[in-house]
Design a protein around this nucleic acid. Structure first.
Lengths: 199, 199, 199, 199
DNA sequence: TATGAATGAGGCTTCATTCAT
DNA sequence: GATGAATGAAGCCTCATTCAT
């Protein structure tokens, strides 16, 4: 890692940046993105307002960072688990589980995720914020499953991937009194049964 | 209907109100809720800014109206179609179709629907704006299906209803190049297959 | 009186005007002048907003009317009582009593009276709203008293008149738990003792 | 004093705050409280509009500050002068003189003082803005005088204190062409003669 | 005469961003 | 790098006033 090579200076900088991100996350989670001001964030971080701009370009920049971070971590976690020779359906199940675990521990980003689309400039319909690589992970597993004959092929892989994506949305806003992870687990079961190739 | 009895004055008033709603809808659809100012709306409606407040209490009030209207219409449309003696699964299919049609014609409200949660005060996680009766419609059909033995009972009806709800979210943000209604149709197929009781 | 000669038309008009004044008075008394909108007044009067302008030029016009009315009535009441051959000091006492009675029954105008100065355009320092004839009444009695040798002459009559005026202000804002009229009575006693010519 | 210990930054901040207060005072004096906008104040202060909110919560907050400041200063000035063994009547005379001097140098606050009642919500009749300690000072001198047998006891001290208070109001709005301080002096003489115990 | 919808100027307030220290 | 005062555009909302019916 580069971290070890960084001087004290650079390490301190990283740390401050992290503190700002943490503060942002807490505020976003508590009040929502648009109701959170940069002053709010920096006060929480116990830093001067102006300092913000030494680390980020804008409030939106923070959001972008948070989302990227989320995606990256999920992506990595999944890659590790794809190793063993499980069936694709099993892999999807595991993927959902890992994602759920991560989101459960970082619940706040999901609202961000969802609101991302609405809070910024006009984008091409349904384009919202990039979130590079979140759906692709799922998509690639699904396509492998379709080639293996495990998964139905009458529905495009993209579309199925979107359904997996929506599981987390649906669970995030669920009114049910079960845990987030259980919630995701049950929804995953429904979906897995729906996509399994019928003989 | 009262409409016939209304004087010219009242009719004009209704019409203006509608024009404002339309203008709001166009702006919300184009720029999102929070990026739309009341001035934007009223300029689009070709009315003075202050006139807005002869019809609505606040921007949030407009949103509330739009959502209510959406829910009411969908609800009504569904009730009409529940008449014939179709199976519950078939009913769900029809319900999704009708909802999709409505949303397709009123696409803009879906972003609203989603962003509703984030634009106001903090609410209990997943509470967002009431949207009375949207999910309940689906839930009641599902429960009927569970009693008839058509639909699996190992997953709570609420949770299944949430998945139906999320179909529309997922379709709204879809990046695929197929039509919204087709998109919903395919996702519905996946879900219906997933909830069907296995023999 | 002209009232008897007025046709039904004119009588109705007078009555409407009065209703508006009453409504204004109630609102001013309850919320203060600047927090009262013309819409408030006209709603209270159960009339359309626009109707206001058939009777008054502006909100300030209403205030002017109310003050004029107050002054006129007090003035008249005093004139009637000045008849009998009382001493000037006694007359002043009576004058205060009548004024207090009137103000007690029309309490709301006093705040108006006081705020009048601040709520309108810039006026020469201490000019505020005309209030024609309120102080003059007192002043003329005082001057008569000075000529009769009842009242001290080392203080200008104007200045004494102002002190009488201020009695009502002081009583209006009094925090004491006695009645307004008693309050005025005691303050009057102080002042009368202060202006009496010492032998 | 903390002032000496303040850094340059803090000192500048205090100064800016003062400049805003001064600008407010000038505007209030010229146009009255409610006709003065925050933009007016800040333009006079040659600062951006938004800057106002770095120093005050609202326009009403400014008013509160000004009144507090007035009261505090008068209070202090009086305390110093109470030292020497003057009679209570003499003390009252001095008190009026000092107050008049202060108000003469800060004329603007008097209109504030008076208009305070009308510019905010309805308050209990005669409650207006706190103005803590203005009347109490006078009241305590009066009560001492009553105990010493200098001042008449048939009128409550509160009520007499209110009369002293009203002297400044009456003088502020006076139409006479004499100076404010002379005006107060004469009115004070009237009142002192009125409250003196008759043998 | 009565109406009340329409108006738009103007008030208050928030906040992302800059910049001198 | 850190600071936080200053900024001013922009948003929301109120309201006296007009005018067509």
């Amino acid at each position: 890692m580069a971290e070890e090579k960084m001087g004290r200076r650079a390490r301190k900088k990283q740390q401050t940046r992290q503190e700002i991100l943490d503060a942002a996350v807490q505020n976003f989670a508590a009040k929502g993105y648009s109701k959170t001001s940069i002053a709010d964030i920096m006060e929480q971080a116990d830093l001067g307002t102006g300092t913000f701009y030494n680390y980020f370009d804008s409030k939106e920049d923070v959001l972008r960072c948070l989302l990227e971070r989320l995606v990256t971590r999920v992506h990595d976690a999944l890659r590790e688990n794809k190793a063993a020779g499980k069936s694709q359906i099993e892999l999807l199940d595991i993927a959902c589980q890992i994602t759920a675990e991560f989101l459960d521990a970082n619940r706040f980003v999901l609202p961000l995720f969802l609101s991302a689309a609405t809070m910024t400039e006009v984008r091409e319909q349904g384009e919202n914020i990039p979130t590079p690589g979140f759906k692709p992970v799922y998509k690639s597993i699904i396509e492998a499953g379709q080639q293996d004959g495990e998964i139905r092929t009458d529905i495009p892989s993209d579309l199925i991937a979107e359904m997996f994506h929506s599981i987390f949305q649906a669970a995030a806003f669920s009114k049910l009194k079960i845990s987030f992870q259980e919630n995701v687990a049950m929804k995953t079961r429904l979906l897995l049964d729906g996509i399994r190739k019928q003989n």
